[in-house]
């Protein structure tokens, strides 16, 4: 929400493994928490995370804002990445991206 919202805890840098719909396992290197952020902050944070990531790394972005969820896959052309999956969780979307 930006104004008058609480500061978030630092992003967890511990990598973990998650499973895609087709059963392939991917190791998520970095989690970007954008819950509560309005458009365009999730896109900017994704851009920053993708430019830092090494080639082949998988990034998870947590977004609860439908506009940003839809805007991220077309951005991947510009950021040299690919969109793996968007998984709907109970209160956010988990967007999985891989740096080419």
């Amino acid at each position: 929400m930006g104004l008058f919202s609480k500061k978030k805890a630092a992003d967890s840098n511990t990598s973990y493994e998650t499973e895609l719909e087709d059963g392939t396992k991917v190791e998520v290197k970095e989690v970007v928490d954008c819950i509560g952020d309005s458009c365009p902050r999730p896109q900017l944070m994704t851009k920053a995370a993708m430019s830092k990531a090494q080639s082949g790394d998988t990034i998870e972005v947590k977004i609860d804002n439908s506009t940003s969820v839809e805007a991220i896959p077309p951005m991947m052309l510009e950021l040299q990445g690919s969109h793996l999956a968007t998984i709907k969780k109970d209160r956010y979307w988990q967007v999985l991206l891989r740096k080419n």
Binding site: C39, P40, Q43, K47, S66, T67, E70, A71, P74, M75, L77, E78
Partner: peptide, 19 residues
């Protein structure tokens, strides 16, 4: 439709998406 005038100008410059 998630139409947004700001995104129309900003995304074209910043993210090179043109929806």
């Amino acid at each position: 439709s998630r139409f947004c005038n700001t995104a129309a100008l900003r995304d074209a410059m910043l993210f090179k998406t043109y929806r």
